[in-house]
Design a protein around this nucleic acid. Sequence first.
DNA 1: CGGTGTGAATGCTTTCACAGCC
DNA 2: GGCTGTGAAAGCATTCACACCG
Lengths: 213, 213
Amino acid sequence: MRKISEATRRRLVEIAQILSQTEEKRITSVQLEALTGWTSASIRKDISAIEYSGGVSNGYDVSSLLDAICKALGIARDEQDSKDRGISHKCCIVGLGKLGTALLENSIFYDTAYSIIAGFDANVNRTEILSASFPLYPASKMSQVIPEQKIEYAILTVPNESAKAMAERLASCGIKGIVNYTSVMLSLPKEIAVENVSPVTAMNNLSAKISLG
Amino acid sequence: MRKISEATRRRLVEIAQILSQTEEKRITSVQLEALTGWTSASIRKDISAIEYSGGVSNGYDVSSLLDAICKALGIARDEQDSKDRGISHKCCIVGLGKLGTALLENSIFYDTAYSIIAGFDANVNRTEILSASFPLYPASKMSQVIPEQKIEYAILTVPNESAKAMAERLASCGIKGIVNYTSVMLSLPKEIAVENVSPVTAMNNLSAKISLG
DNA sequence: CGGTGTGAATGCTTTCACAGCC
DNA sequence: GGCTGTGAAAGCATTCACACCG
């Protein structure tokens, strides 16, 4: 069970997302191959890495497979599941510029296990003018609010210039993971997980992928 | 040279991004290890996969290493370089909701090889009301504008409900890569590259990474 | 049959360790 | 002395192939 490798994990996360969007009742590894591009054998191996006995003969039961994957990866399948299992990942948005406010108004985490419960910005004006369904604080309050509210994840949408400093502050506040929308590569203690999702990084990856065939 | 693996490519893209943000003149593989968390041996192997002779004895020359990586991966280091080498990646934004407009006002690709030259939305009102430094079109014009303008990449910021359909349309217009901000997993012909950067996907990855240690 | 689950074989990547160089 | 570059070894992951099951 502790044998879930990086590659397998990424695939399972993606498979889980596909399953949650499928309306079929059952699905086979060959269908998943068509959907994902990975070989069916590799998908079966991935699934065998988690404890799941269901898939006998005519494919997997979508719902129970999804449950099994989510359980194995420690993620919740939706809001209900997250309540049932007592998993709730509290997040905050750091940086309330154009992008940050777009995300906070978008209710992006509707019906997921994640919920945004605070926003921060260095500019006090902004935290006072903007409004959201959760409180907004000046950045100076981070070190107080984050531990107090047990916030685990941060979505970093500050300008590049402040990215490094803010990330380090988040780290020292005990944040566990950062979704990084800036194009600055963060260097943080390795127990803090970072997921880079800046458009520039994404484009570079895309572009390199294509140009190498 | 065609031996650049997926893993190596991703690391090199990240290293390139770090190099472009370093103001030091030289850097060693051990320093890169500290910054990235990957072992120095693996970094040296990665670099040896591209044609680069520079790094003798006391580390690598930041600027020439960056050049070499960019050249090997087919990406441009900045706007100037992209002009010099005649590389210019034209992009469009599909979906001008909150997120889409945040991205288009943000001049996110300032001083990169990428430039956004068109925006699309299914809602004609929106394309008429909004304004940007590039033209906005109703989605019906996609199949005309994309080939005509030789647009290679799309940033997909439509609502989840329309993601699948829009992605398929983009594919049929001959787009080469999609940066996917929706949480729908796209299944497209494998010659079309997709980079998933939705907050939900990112959080799931983060969360799985942490819970598996 | 059409499908899963899984040892065995193959093919990659990463790590090790050290020669060679400044 | 410190660092790169690289064969050789070790460790993983993917693919193959087939027994087994409904």
